[in-house]
């Protein structure tokens, strides 16, 4: 909470509850670190659960307009608004390593390729989750063909394209409705990361958890932590330096680690429950890659029409991710 002594009292607003890992493991530790590094001159009060008003899609406007000083949000909540960084949602751009993908996002922000999306805010971090795995109620999935005709819940806008490309039927529904839909087989499965298993009790509603070898996933979701530009501008240089230090590459990598770690309890819970954890490998996984390439092309076509060089973005993102993945080995 804020202190009387601080020179700058900031508000950090986000959508998840005060017990969520994003709040306890990522946001709160970060604000504490900034407060400490500032010697108590900056105070940040965190407001979880949209308690400062609006719905999650409004978070972006709130940080732009200075309604709050910091937000953490999902870029996909405002489709159309971050057209360049959507490249990281695409299948087989991000594959299996959130740290590498976060580092690649850092590169593309620094070299200007996705900077236009974020011109109105001071970016503290961009990051992804571990990526979408497949969860099915009663059908084991070993090949692309196994997915044909299944009804699957859409994770993101491009996630719907992924499901179509795999020959399945995309079903759009709000997340809170997913458990009910799975339990009554309104949908046959969903594309979500392991980390969602515990809060929605997905392990009790499905029998199979499916991913590619080496934790390969099928697309992901991108997030950002952003600061209002004026809130940053009004800081003296030494405090700006505190923010910059805590918005650097180390922090982006640390977030990657936090989200990698957040996956483990989820899949463990499913396996302990008696679910089968299927890992698709080798040639079968290659078939997924081939089947999903048209999704990438569809996206390139769409953004090219808006005057964005989609092809270059895909190439740059893949290259940077490959480079950082190797470093991490």
């Amino acid at each position: 909470s804020t202190s009387m002594a601080a020179e700058f009292n900031f508000k950090f607003h986000h959508l998840l509850g005060p017990k969520s890992p994003a709040h306890t493991k990522m946001i709160v530790p970060w604000t504490e670190r900034v407060m400490k590094d500032s010697g108590g001159r900056i105070a940040i009060e965190v407001f979880p659960s949209m308690s400062l008003g609006g719905k999650p899609p409004q978070l972006v406007n709130q940080v732009n307009d200075g309604v709050v000083d910091f937000v953490w949000t999902v870029l996909g909540y405002t489709p159309g608004r971050f057209p360049r960084s959507e490249v990281f949602d695409l299948p087989f751009v991000h594959t299996n390593n959130p740290i590498a993908t976060n580092m690649a996002m850092y590169d593309l922000l620094q070299n200007g390729m996705i900077a236009e999306d974020f011109k109105d805010v001071k970016v503290i971090a961009l990051h992804v989750n571990a990526g979408q795995a497949i969860h099915t109620v009663d059908k084991p999935i070993h090949t692309v063909e196994d997915l044909k005709g299944l009804k699957l819940r859409i994770p993101t806008r491009t996630g719907g394209w992924i499901i179509e490309a795999l020959g399945a039927n995309p079903v759009a529904m709000p997340v809170p409705e997913l458990p009910q839909a799975l339990s009554k087989k309104v949908v046959d499965g969903a594309f979500i990361p392991w980390e969602i298993i515990p809060p929605l009790k997905i392990h009790e509603l499905t029998k199979y958890q499916i991913e590619g070898e080496n934790n390969t996933r099928f697309g992901t979701t991108t997030f950002m932590i952003a600061m209002n530009k004026d809130s940053y501008a009004k800081l003296p240089d030494d405090l700006k330096a505190v923010i910059d230090k805590n918005a650097g590459l180390d922090w982006w990598k640390e977030i990657g680690q936090i989200w990698t770690d957040s996956e483990k309890p989820g899949i463990k819970m499913a396996v302990d429950h008696g679910n089968e954890h299927i890992v698709i490998a080798g040639a079968e996984l290659e078939k997924f890659r081939t089947a999903l390439e048209p999704v990438v092309n569809r996206w390139v076509e769409e953004v090219t029409a808006k005057g964005i060089d989609g092809k270059a973005l895909v190439a740059a993102a893949r290259e940077a991710i490959a480079k950082h993945s190797k470093e991490g080995m």
Partner: peptide, 20 residues
Amino acid sequence: VDIVLSQLKDLAYSQFSIYD
């Protein structure tokens, strides 16, 4: 006053368009 003026740009829309 800026805070409330900014939020009013889409607060009513966002409150009225909740799926639940």
